[in-house]
Nucleic acid binder design. Structure first.
Lengths: 226, 226
DNA sequence: GTTAAAATATGATATTCATCACATTTTTAA
DNA sequence: TTAAAAATGTGATGAATATCATATTTTAAC
């Protein structure tokens, strides 16, 4: 594995900011960087893995093959770790990661990562806190998926993109209608219909992948009411 | 907080087994044990919390108030930690825990717990691994809930109870029809109908809360096919 | 043991949404 | 630039399941 200079990296994770110079050297000596274009598979479900994966720049989707096809379990935006759960608890990837835009990824050797966990409690604590927050977010996502109807789920996912991913009321959808369906558990036809329905109600305007939220409070109401 | 003797505890968590005698004393000096009867609330969503909660014996449900009423996000069987995600990342409980049978719980002061995380890497690593596994399990649960139809979800939850909770083909349901509905995202009427439907098909036999799985492989097929 | 309350069962009806079929538009590749 | 492939839009239909209504059974309280 090629050595890279993590000390000089200006896109360190919150956890890595706790590392000393020598610890950063351990990291840099066991780390490789790679760039992925939109659509590229970063790692694949059921493949063996021996790396922790850090998303340095970009946006990706995590997807699981379920009983009825693909389910997009979540989007992840840099900076964050992608492969923690898959590589630590289990050697086999339990899901796939696919780039939704040009993304930079660091592959960290799992033994080096474990060594850092062993020697730096602050680093470890940050990782733990991040995991806790993920678990909570996942609980809430799941509740919304199970309890809301499709119209509300769609509204919720558009709000999520606007708020969490793009921090803007206007953006280009990083997903096809079919992928949005895979994310909220419905068919591509229903996504089409409901996106156009939202546009007709004047809640959003849509043109191809370009979307603009016109009435955020109403969209929030739809997202909550179902 | 009363001091208890964690060294002598025969129901230690995998993580706690890594602690030294002096570390166990830190734990014991910052730990209180309590017993909860069936139906008792162990902690409540939106309440402030300053404890890590270890389920020593018993069975509980974790529930979130969603937009359309209560959602049971998961059952947890001793031995395990209940309060990790709620108390670490966030001071306010994001969900409630309710005893489904007589349960013993240890309340661990969060500062003592953090101190153990700081001083014992093996302890911390076990906690991390447990978190990773939880996240994966949660992903899979969520995919099944979103993709399967109610009949399959019900079959899945009955299998889960038989395999993971009771390790037996025959047991008493710890949940009412209505609670099962809250767990799989459907109405109590539909649960009633489908439980009886499974019984008519000869897949299970049911009498009140007492359930016996008669045709496990068919139940698994239903659980997978939806 | 009796009564009230809660849980469960079950039919009828309405709604949501998947699926199929096919048209149209957009993107990709040669 | 053109052809092929992929993505999207939209109507018709049917299946799954929520909801409402009401009866029955079980459990809890006094």
């Amino acid at each position: 594995m090629r050595s890279i200079n993590c000390s000089a990296c200006i896109l360190k994770s919150t956890a890595v900011k706790n590392l000393t110079v020598s610890e950063l050297n351990i990291l840099g000596n066991n780390c490789a960087e790679a760039v992925f274009k939109k659509g590229d598979i970063i790692f694949k479900q059921n493949a063996l893995s021996s790396n922790i994966i850090y998303l340095r720049t970009g946006l990706i989707k995590l997807a699981i093959e379920g009983p009825q096809g693909t389910q997009i379990i979540r989007l992840k935006k840099a900076p964050c770790y992608l492969g923690l759960p898959t590589t630590m608890g289990d050697k086999i990837n339990q899901y796939s990661a696919v780039a939704l835009e040009l993304s930079t990824v660091c592959f960290i050797d799992i033994h080096a990562f474990k060594e850092l966990l062993r020697i730096n409690p602050d680093f470890t604590y940050e990782i733990l806190i991040r995991m806790y927050k993920n678990e909570l977010e996942q609980f809430h996502r799941c509740v919304k998926l199970v309890q809301n109807q499709v119209y509300g789920r769609l509204a919720g996912s558009l709000l999520y993109l606007a708020e969490e991913i793009y921090a803007s009321q206007e953006f280009n959808l990083p997903l096809s209608r079919s992928e949005i369906g895979d994310m909220i558990g419905t068919s591509r036809e229903t996504v089409s219909r409901m996106i156009n329905s939202l546009a007709q109600e004047g809640v959003i305007s849509i043109s191809g992948k370009h979307i603009k939220i016109l009435n955020k409070s109403l969209l929030e109401k739809i997202s909550q009411k179902g």
